[in-house]
Write a protein that binds this DNA or RNA. Structure first.
Lengths: 244, 244
DNA sequence: CGCTGTGTTGACAGGTCTCAATATAAGTGG
DNA sequence: CCACTTATATTGAGACCTGTCAACACAGCG
């Protein structure tokens, strides 16, 4: 039961099959990218957005010193590169972390979408607001939490995206196809320090780790991270896209 | 020539006067908030969004230890609290930093807006993407830059919002109605450290300061900060909201 | 005038980074 | 399948940035 772009658009309210079909028709041909391949670089001219069908992708900003800050871990169903839609030159580099299947959506096609399917546009609008919430949580963690708490927050956030249950379960396991360098760029710390933080979290019993497989108690780790659980609205009564 | 909500919505393309009038009609009565007054607290039930007509407002997330991370400095014309639109409980606390005039927009009214004016919705969608870009730049600065660079980035970003010229001017001056505690919560550092950083930036000649008035060379400070200048699209050819 | 918020400074502790070396896993070409 | 190369992980020592605690200066306000 993997997530698709449809699922992501249906996050907040239902859409008709006509609306969803429109999205399908606008798709370009799917392309595959190997691990570590760059789908688009920051600074490239913006030609469109991308739908992620399979695999994980990182979007990151690059600093002058060659450092990078990973902005988001994208999973199947995500729309990639949408913030750069308002820019002539892309702000984020998109890098595959696993073998990834991607469908480019040219800006012209996206314009049609926005013009012809107001309810779809509304879904995209709410989705953009959701992304702002997630980014804000990341900013709060990076700005005001210790490295260990940031890692805890990351683990929990990734878990939340993969399992959207109504309540926190007990111990769970999670496989991350990310290198410690990826984690460092995600958390805003050094590779060396990532390693030390992992060791200390294991020592304190907050997580268990075998390679890239992590086991932890969601509620306990979330509490440790300091980032609250986010509940999302669903079919809000105030929302009537498409008129009465 | 102060900015209004109209200006913000017109950032990316033109709107008809009918569309803008719709927005005006949905406004509730304006309210005023004194310096340091809280307009809404994180955790409050989300009842709507707010339009900022006058003054500056901070939106911030709060951490368990009582710490806070300021997410954005809002200026006249901004829509406040929109990320929380997808949440039952607000994620950000909104605090006036100057005497502020604010118009609440209930969610029901906002729903009407989204349903009846697809072009307005499109403008809001692009605006949300723009906010994602700005938030991402902040995350990159907080995650991968020194405290001095973060402050430089903040100064330049605030300048950019107040003066949107096509090219970086030479020396400019800027008054910030923010306490050093505000700056600390914005940059993810301590008040004490803010003070030290300011002193060192002055010592190196990158900024001049008199109280809350700062003078600096925009291009030089931007270069020091490591955050690139963002150019925004305007009337993109691909964008045809409302159909053909 | 005294209170309170804000700014400033110093000494010290702690978290994180840098540099550097080694270990382990993964990938490649023969 | 092995030998080699490369990527990734791990560990240590010391420097640096930033935080903590505490004291004092200064400004705004009643």
């Amino acid at each position: 039961m993997k997530s698709t772009p449809r699922d992501r658009l249906l996050e907040f309210f239902e859409l008709t099959s006509d609306e969803l079909d429109l999205l399908e028709r606008l798709r370009g041909p799917a392309a595959r990218f190997a691990r570590h391949a760059e789908i688009r670089r920051a600074g490239d001219k913006v030609k469109g957005v991308f739908l992620l069908l399979e695999g994980w992708v990182l979007s990151s900003a690059e600093m002058p010193g060659g450092q990078r800050q990973v902005l988001k871990v994208h999973m199947p169903g995500d729309m990639l590169g949408s913030p750069s839609m308002v820019l002539p030159l892309a702000m984020e580099t998109l890098t595959a972390v696993t073998l990834a299947t991607i469908v480019p959506v040219p800006l012209s096609a996206f314009g049609v979408l926005l013009g012809q399917a107001p309810r779809l546009l509304a879904a995209l609008f709410l989705s953009a607001q959701q992304e702002r919430v997630l980014l804000s949580d990341r900013l709060a963690a990076v700005g005001r939490a210790t490295a260990a708490q940031r890692f805890a927050a990351l683990l929990v956030q990734l878990y939340d995206r993969l399992n959207r249950g109504p309540v926190d379960p007990g111990p769970v396991s999670l496989h991350l196809p990310l290198t410690q360098q990826d984690l460092a760029d995600l958390l805003g710390i050094t590779v060396v320090h990532v390693n030390r933080v992992l060791k200390s979290l294991v020592a304190e019993g907050l997580i268990a780790r075998d390679r890239n497989d992590y086991r932890f108690d969601v509620a306990r780790l979330r509490n440790f991270s300091g980032i609250p659980r986010r509940e999302w609205i669903r079919n809000p009564s105030w929302f009537r896209p498409g008129g009465y």
